[in-house]
Amino acid sequence: MGQSHSMTINGRSLDVRLDDPDTPLLYVLRNEVGLRGPRFGCGLGQCGACTVHVDGQIVRSCVTPLSSLKPESKIVTLEGLGTPEAPHPVQAAFVEEQAAQCGYCINGMIMTSAAFLNDKPKPSEAEIRQALAGNLCRCGTHARIVRAVQRAATSL
């Protein structure tokens, strides 16, 4: 049964029912809403795989209880960032640079970079690396990811 919670996700309002209002946002997005952009990596706020935007800010959804969000908070996931037809510049740049191996971390890389470039449209390479310092990639795609963010910055 559980309680009903209102949310705004990717521009859509919806209600979810949860047994536990402290369920982390990640599980709500993946299992209740059926989104796949945000990924489970650690559940500890350590890797960034679960990153989403809440009111334009990056949030680690694995450690964000749903109860901590206001119903009017605007949640945007990778799905809501862009589409192949209308890509976000960061997404287009990741495709151009072939910036993925397994791709499991890539949600976090794109979401973090998109928010970062919003605040700082013309970053240096060192600033990009710093902005992504808390996002882990095990495949070693870092070099391509940095190139993709640089490319996106020039196209913004």
Binding site: L35, R36, G37, R39, F40, T77, L78, E79, G82, T83, P84, P87, Q91, F94, V95, Q98, A100, G103, Y104, I106, N107, I110
Partner: peptide
């Protein structure tokens, strides 16, 4: 040749085991 699997991974339409 561009990797066939990459666009879906970038636009969140790929299916990982976890999905």
């Amino acid at each position: 040749v561009a990797r066939l699997d990459i666009p879906a991974k970038i636009y969140a339409s790929s299916t990982y085991m976890q999905d």
